[in-house]
Amino acid sequence: MAEQVALSRTQVCGILREELFQGDAFHQSDTHIFIIMGASGDLAKKKIYPTIWWLFRDGLLPENTFIVGYARSRLTVADIRKQSEPFFKATPEEKLKLEDFFARNSYVAGQYDDAASYQRLNSHMNALHLGSQANRLFYLALPPTVYEAVTKNIHESCMSQIGWNRIIVEKPFGRDLQSSDRLSNHISSLFREDQIYRIDHYLGKEMVQNLMVLRFANRIFGPIWNRDNIACVILTFKEPFGTEGRGGYFDEFGIIRDVMQNHLLQMLCLVAMEKPASTNSDDVRDEKVKVLKCISEVQANNVVLGQYVGNPDGEGEATKGYLDDPTVPRGSTTATFAAVVLYVENERWDGVPFILRCGKALNERKAEVRLQFHDVAGDIFHQQCKRNELVIRVQPNEAVYTKMMTKKPGMFFNPEESELDLTYGNRYKNVKLPDAYERLILDVFCGSQMHFVRSDELREAWRIFTPLLHQIELEKPKPIPYIYGSRGPTEADELMKRVGFQYEGTYKWVNP
């Protein structure tokens, strides 16, 4: 592979701008107003304001973009700056750019259920340069409990009458099928589907988006991507930290609602779906819905739930269990780990287990898709061969690698495990991989909904998990304890083995 010439960040961002501006969906010269509902909250200060700053800094926003914060707290732009700027990672050389960014910011205080507050917000936006005809993007960085009041008031008082209007809704989209349907029906009564952007930030990850290209742009994968060759698929999300004093919020939802029903299920769809007619948003989402419709409700015998306990040999936070978090209700049975087996009941995947695993306070930070292939028929190497695996590593250190057998150097035919490896950090030294939120917010500006969740996708996802969630809430089974920093409950490994996964433990990928 030829040595790549190092590029400056300015040059890299210039390439990104060229890609972005050559499309006809990006209205570079139009006025846009980006409204952050819930501007005083954690999500706004840690993710949304920093993301908008990065896009502005790199010249990736339309030229005439204004940012308006809205929340109940009586704040000023200076207050917003004070709480969000520490997350910007701005350099001293960017000081003038930073001043320009905050000059485009404003803030309006108001209630979430008060019509007069929204009329005041609308008047404020109209007073901005060309504000009355601007395109408006409303980001709901809010708890779902206020979605209905907020969307109703936005629709009645704050819509642009000339430009387009788009609304970005953060997960969780309800707690179960019934609450999700209620919320979807409410929002759909106010906005068209092409105006609604239900954001799952995992769909903005580079390697998640790469799944489609790997599958449908490489001839070698087509013939082997089926039940005849693939023994099982494992989708993993692991965090090495616990709730760390923020367990009160987590306890309301648990690990299945927080990660599995959305992030992991979306990745499953991209692995299992048929080739779409095109890369058009609805063509892709149509195929994802077909996959979900082929999955039956989760069966309790295919589920393992766990909850982390303190590690007596650990240090600091590792010595504390979930129930030691003062914000967690006493005696909570909320799971911090889950392993679930699903089956896609169609011709391509009949009988292939899709194993979804996620948890907190585990032994490493990792998100990946792992396809394990069947054993080689007619073994001539005296059971020395391990199964081939194709691994798409989402985070950290984005990579695609194939675990395969090669001859060990020497005189004899002794096979050993090795890999074919594409590590993004080595291959793409001159490429700026956008943060997931950067990519998705740019998608909203461009009107691309491919990486957002459609209402029928959402409904099918909740259909699969709601009976299990209701059973857990009714019966309150005690989750299996696992030690902070471990791989999780051993019962999860036993479940995976029972459905056909072979864990060798003899080879570990190392970032080159």
Rank of each mutant, 00 (worst) to 15 (best):
E3R: 15
V5L: 10
A6L: 06
S8W: 04
R9L: 05
T10V: 07
T10P: 05
Q11P: 09
Q11D: 12
V12H: 15
C13G: 04
R17I: 08
E18A: 13
E18I: 09
L20R: 05
Q22R: 08
G23Q: 13
D24K: 06
D24M: 11
D24Y: 15
A25W: 10
F26I: 12
F26T: 08
F26S: 06
H27L: 10
Q28C: 10
D30I: 06
H32D: 03
H32N: 05
I33D: 03
F34D: 01
F34E: 01
F34R: 00
F34P: 01
I35L: 06
I36H: 00
M37A: 07
M37C: 15
A39E: 01
A39L: 01
S40Y: 04
S40R: 03
S40P: 03
S40E: 06
D42E: 14
D42C: 10
L43S: 05
K45D: 01
K46C: 09
T51Y: 12
W53K: 01
W53S: 00
W54D: 10
F56G: 02
D58E: 10
G59N: 09
L60T: 03
L61Y: 00
P62S: 05
T65W: 13
T65N: 02
F66S: 05
I67W: 01
I67L: 04
I67G: 00
V68Y: 02
G69S: 03
A71D: 15
R72H: 14
S73L: 04
L75R: 06
T76D: 10
T76G: 05
A78L: 08
D79M: 05
I80C: 03
R81Y: 04
K82F: 06
Q83R: 14
Q83G: 12
E85T: 04
P86W: 04
P86S: 05
P86M: 07
P86V: 10
F87G: 03
F87S: 04
F88I: 09
A90T: 12
T91P: 05
P92W: 10
E93L: 05
E94K: 02
K95D: 07
K97L: 08
K97V: 04
E99R: 09
D100Q: 15
F101Y: 03
A103F: 05
A103P: 02
S106N: 04
S106G: 03
S106H: 10
Y107R: 01
Y107V: 12
V108Y: 06
A109D: 07
A109S: 10
A109T: 13
Y112W: 05
Y112L: 07
D113F: 05
D114A: 05
A115C: 11
A115F: 07
A116E: 14
A116Q: 10
S117M: 10
Q119R: 13
Q119N: 10
Q119H: 06
L121Q: 06
N122Y: 08
S123Y: 09
S123A: 13
A127I: 09
L128H: 06
H129V: 12
L130I: 09
G131T: 12
S132M: 10
Q133K: 12
Q133I: 10
A134K: 04
A134T: 12
R136I: 03
R136F: 05
L137H: 03
A141N: 12
A141K: 00
L142D: 07
P143E: 12
P143W: 05
T145P: 09
T145K: 12
E148P: 14
E148V: 11
E148R: 14
A149G: 14
V150H: 00
T151K: 02
I154T: 03
E156F: 05
M159A: 08
M159H: 11
S160L: 02
S160G: 07
Q161A: 12
Q161K: 12
Q161M: 07
I162S: 09
G163P: 01
W164P: 03
W164N: 04
R166D: 00
I167K: 00
I168Q: 00
E170Y: 00
G174D: 05
D176F: 04
L177K: 15
Q178P: 08
Q178M: 12
S179T: 13
S180G: 07
S180Y: 07
R182L: 11
R182V: 08
S184W: 05
N185A: 09
N185V: 06
N185I: 09
H186K: 09
S188P: 02
S189H: 14
L190E: 06
L190Y: 12
D194K: 10
Q195F: 01
Q195H: 06
Q195C: 09
I196M: 02
I196C: 03
Y197L: 01
R198Q: 03
R198C: 03
R198N: 03
R198F: 02
D200E: 09
D200T: 12
H201Y: 10
H201W: 13
L203E: 14
K205L: 04
K205V: 15
K205H: 14
E206S: 14
M207V: 14
N210Q: 14
L211P: 00
L211R: 00
L214P: 12
R215W: 01
F216V: 02
F216L: 01
A217P: 00
A217G: 04
N218E: 00
R219W: 10
G222W: 11
G222V: 06
G222M: 09
P223M: 07
I224Y: 03
N226G: 13
N226P: 00
R227I: 00
D228Q: 09
N229E: 04
N229L: 02
I230C: 06
I230Y: 01
C232Q: 13
I234W: 08
I234K: 14
L235P: 01
L235R: 01
T236A: 04
T236I: 02
F237L: 04
K238P: 00
K238S: 13
P240Y: 05
P240W: 05
T243I: 14
T243D: 12
G245N: 10
F250D: 06
D251I: 00
G254W: 01
G254R: 00
I255P: 07
I256C: 08
I256K: 01
